[in-house]
Amino acid sequence: MVVDAYDFWLFDLDGTLVDAEWSYTRSVFDRVGERIDRPFSDREAEIIWHGLGGARNPILRAWDIDPAAFWPAFHAEENPQQRAEATYLHGDADALLSVIDVPIGIVTHCQSFLTQPVLEQLALDERVETVLCCTDETGWKPDPKPVQSAMKQLNIGRDSVGVLAGDGESDIGAAWNAGLDGIHVERHGPDHRGRCVLGDYRVRSFDELPY
């Protein structure tokens, strides 16, 4: 059984354990578009929000958007409480978390000022032992450093076997770069994503895992 095979589990947050209602996402991109004087289509908003095309900064540059201008505008328009209230826990993620009885951590690109309210709103802070929000100092997935930092916080032993589950290719890359198995949960479909993401396990829902 997959769950019993690991001594610890790490998860990405957005798109993996939780998601935000589309109305919230759309409103954020509307306001960001006004700030930088560049409107976003629904498809463009989806691509950036969910990371459908891979790393976001190269995509922004391909659209002639300076990431150094976009991200401050994006974070300025995110409201932590509204984000938390608009965020829901995926049912399959809830079920999987309920059967894991080894240490659990989260490694997310979502910034701490947004992550903590979401965790509290959904009581996820009571179900995980550590949360690492990536920064320039910690490194960004697929860099293994944030994963390794989370493992250190969990006091993971050298011979422990672990896994990282996420919805993006950067999650699987970070898992493999850190010597972990990678589970890719594809919540959008490869046609909508525009590419196929590899993984040791590839599922549309965590319900597909044998446990």
Rank of each mutant, 00 (worst) to 15 (best):
A68N: 14
V28I: 15
D14I: 09
A95R: 15
W71A: 03
F11S: 11
D200V: 00
T115I: 02
V18I: 15
G139K: 05
R38Y: 08
S98P: 05
P67C: 13
A175L: 10
S112T: 09
S98R: 15
S23D: 15
H109K: 11
G179R: 13
H109E: 12
W49C: 07
R158D: 14
L122I: 13
V197C: 09
P103M: 00
I65A: 12
D92I: 05
P58H: 04
L96P: 05
A62Y: 00
S170P: 08
W49D: 08
L180T: 10
A174K: 03
T115S: 03
V28E: 04
L132D: 01
E120D: 14
N79R: 13
D159M: 07
T115Q: 05
I36F: 06
V147E: 07
D94R: 15
E129Y: 02
G189E: 05
K145V: 10
A73V: 04
D30F: 05
D94M: 06
D191R: 13
A93I: 01
G53W: 07
Q81A: 15
P72M: 11
I183L: 14
I36N: 11
M1P: 07
E34L: 13
V3P: 05
D4C: 02
V2M: 02
Q153E: 13
A69N: 09
D159W: 09
G173F: 04
P67T: 12
A62I: 01
I36K: 12
S98E: 15
F29G: 01
Y88M: 10
Q111V: 08
T16V: 11
V28F: 03
E46W: 03
